[in-house]
Simulated assay, not measured.
Amino acid sequence: MRAGRPCRRISGGVRPERPAVDVALARRAAAETDGDSTEPADRAGDPQLLLVTQADRDSVAVVNPRDRDGSAVVDEITVGAAPWDVAVHPESGRAFVSTALGVAVVDVATGERTRLLDYRHRPREVAYGEYRPGGLGLAVSADGSTVHVAVSTGDEAFLETIDVGTGRVERSTPVGRRPFDVLISHDGREVYTIDHDGFTVTVVDTTTFDARAIEVAPFGTEGGLASFEKPHYAVLDPGGDLLLPYQGRALARVDPVSGEVTTSALGADTHQHGVARADDGTLVLAGNGPFGNAGGGASIEVVSPDGGSTVLPTERRHETAAIWQDADKTYGVLTGGYTQDGAWDGMTVVALDAALGGTDDSYEIRVPGRPQAVVPVTLPHREGTP
Rank of each mutant, 00 (worst) to 15 (best):
H271D: 14
R382C: 05
V235H: 07
S145Q: 07
V374A: 08
V375C: 02
Q325G: 07
T263H: 12
R171E: 06
T166K: 00
V14W: 15
A250N: 04
R2N: 09
T270S: 15
L285T: 03
G274H: 09
G289Y: 13
A278Q: 09
D237F: 14
G342F: 10
E260M: 08
T314D: 07
G297Y: 14
S185M: 04
D36G: 06
N293H: 12
T320I: 11
D328F: 09
R120L: 13
R28A: 13
D36A: 10
A373W: 11
A157S: 15
P290G: 05
Y233C: 04
E215K: 10
Y233K: 09
G154R: 04
N288H: 13
H121G: 00
D58A: 09
V73T: 10
D279L: 15
V350P: 01
V284L: 15
L136G: 00
I300N: 03
C7G: 03
V216S: 03
G259F: 09
L242T: 02
S92K: 08
E222A: 15
A343I: 06
R178Q: 10
D58Y: 05
G188Y: 12
G308Y: 12
W324D: 01
L283K: 09
P245V: 06
E229Q: 09
R317N: 04
A298N: 10
D361H: 10
N293D: 13
S227W: 13
A24Q: 12
A322Y: 13
D118T: 00
D69H: 09
A211L: 06
R94K: 08
T200R: 10
R189L: 08
L251T: 08
W344P: 00
E156T: 04
L244K: 01
D195R: 10
H271L: 15
D205L: 12
L236T: 02
P256A: 12
A286G: 02
I323N: 01
G45P: 07
D85Y: 13
G129H: 11
A41G: 14
I77K: 07
T348F: 06
A373E: 11
G259K: 06
P380W: 14
G4C: 13
K329I: 11
R370E: 05
A24S: 13
V350M: 08
Q372K: 10
G12M: 12
A250E: 14
P65T: 08
R57A: 06
